[in-house]
Structure formats: C-alpha cells, structure tokens
C-alpha cells in the first residue's frame, strides 16, 4: 500500500512532462509524414526514431534528478523523511515511476512511427513478400534492443540518484560533488562489472537474432553483474537517504 501510494504520487507528478513530450513526438511524426516524399529514408529514421528515443532517455534521466531536486526545493522532503518507509522504497518508487513512463512513451513513439511509416508507404508494405518472413526477426531485434535501452536508462537513473544524494551530504560545492559522484560511480561500476561477470561465466548466453544464418550471442554475465551492482547501489542510496542526508 505504501509503495503503491508513493509510486502513484511520483507518476502523477511527472506524467505531464511525458504527456507534453508524447504530443511533441506525434507532431514530429505528422511533419515527417508530410515531408517523407522530400526527405530520404535516413532522415526519416533519424527524425522519427533516433531523436525521439534519445530525448525520451535524456528526459527520463533528467527526471531522476528532478524528482529528488523538487523534494528538497519544495521542502516535501520533510514529509518523505517523516514517513515510516525505508529509504530504498522511496527511491525505488521514483525509479519505477520514471521507467514505467519511459516504457509507455517508447511504445507511443514506436506506435506513432509505425502509423506514420504505414501511412507513407502503405502500397509498398502491402506488396512486400519479404515482410512476413522478416517480421519475427524484426520483432526479436526490436525487443532485445528495447530491453538494452531500458536497462541502460535504469542503470543511469540509479547512478543519478546516488550522485544527487551525495550532493546533499555537503553544504558547499554541491554541483562539483554531484558531478564527481556521478562520474566516479559510473567508472567504478563499469570497472567492477567485468570482474563480477568473470565469476558468472557459468550463466547462459543471450542471443539477439534467432535466424539460422545469423545468430549473435552475448554472455549474460555482464548484464547480471550490472543488475546486482545496480541493486546494491539502490540499497546504498536508500541508506544514504534514510540515515545520512539531513534537513
């Protein structure tokens, strides 16, 4: 109940931002639809997919910082700290709210893009004989790519939370501490991950393309290592939030 309330509170507070962004993406795709006859395929792909997904990730990471910053700015941190809730739960609620909105926005971008593409090239799509054969592979690649995308953003969100909380431990030079903590944590985690993945050699491989002719394998060790390190950092963030930051 407590976690659900925190999650819903976070969702409501950041939903407007994602709503505005989604509307902007829709407008962008409508613009692309009208200009698709003039612009090349590469420009269409960059404008329709790459830039929206990049901005969605940047907005989410920025939201991770903003969620904590606004608690301190509006003094609602007093309310949060006086609640009988563990620090990691408060921070996980923020994390999951931002990630869930990222996922929904990503689905929106994808859905809007497909609609634009289909509207622009409907005749070509109808006539294509390769599409039914390519569809499962396309789906697999898209899903794997999306998973990696969300994984990366989640990881960066946790590091951003850590950096912000470190900044709250000092009275002066906060920005310097936040930047140092962000870069330091990132460097440390990326150094520890290969060592940890070395211990996880026995874990199964991940395959990206399920086609007989072309299979790409990735060892799951680094990903599991990053998940474990991320979970550890979430716990540390919770400890700092609960015991170390002061108001």
């Amino acid at each position: 109940m407590a976690f659900r309330k925190l999650f819903l509170k976070e969702w409501r507070s950041i939903l407007p931002m994602y709503g505005v962004f989604s509307a902007a993406v829709l407008l962008l795709h409508v613009l692309v639809l009208f200009k698709s006859g003039v612009w090349g395929d590469e420009i269409v792909m960059i404008l329709s997919l790459f830039i929206p997904y990049l901005f969605a990730a940047l907005i989410t990471i920025g939201t991770g910082y903003y969620q904590l910053h606004s608690e301190w700015r509006t003094n609602s941190i007093y309310l949060l700290l006086s609640l009988p809730v563990r620090g990691w739960k408060v921070l996980t609620a923020k994390l999951t709210a931002a990630l869930s909105l990222l996922i929904l926005t990503s689905l929106w971008i994808g859905g809007s893009f497909i609609l634009v593409l289909m509207l622009a090239d409907w005749d070509d799509w109808r006539a294509s004989e390769e599409l039914p054969e390519l569809f499962p592979t396309l789906l697999h690649v898209t899903a794997s790519g999306f998973l990696l995308y969300c994984f990366t953003v989640a990881f960066l969100l946790i590091v951003v939370q850590f950096a912000f909380l470190c900044g709250q431990l000092v009275a002066k030079l906060k920005w310097l501490v936040i930047l140092g903590a962000f870069l330091g944590a990132l460097w440390l985690l990326l150094r520890l991950s290969p060592m940890l993945s070395g211990l996880l050699l026995w874990t199964p491989d991940l395959f990206i393309v399920s086609d007989d002719a072309d299979i790409l394998y990735l060892h799951s060790g680094p990903f599991i290592g990053l998940v474990l390190l991320g979970a550890g950092l979430v716990w540390l963030n919770g400890y700092i939030f609960e015991k170390e930051v002061e108001v």
Partner: peptide, 27 residues
C-alpha cells in the same frame, strides 16, 4: 510519532483530500 514541521512540506499540486489520503496510506 506524528511530526509537524515548521515549514510547508506538503505537495502543492495535491488537493486537501488527496493530501490526507496520501498520508493516511502509511499509518
């Protein structure tokens, strides 16, 4: 413990009812 801080610590975008519902969920 029920703690009332001196400064304004409520969420300004919530209504009175939502504020009390939010706080009540934890106790």
């Amino acid at each position: 413990i029920a703690y009332l801080p001196e400064i304004d610590s409520l969420y300004s975008w919530m209504t009175v009812k939502e504020t009390l519902q939010f706080i009540s969920a934890f106790y």
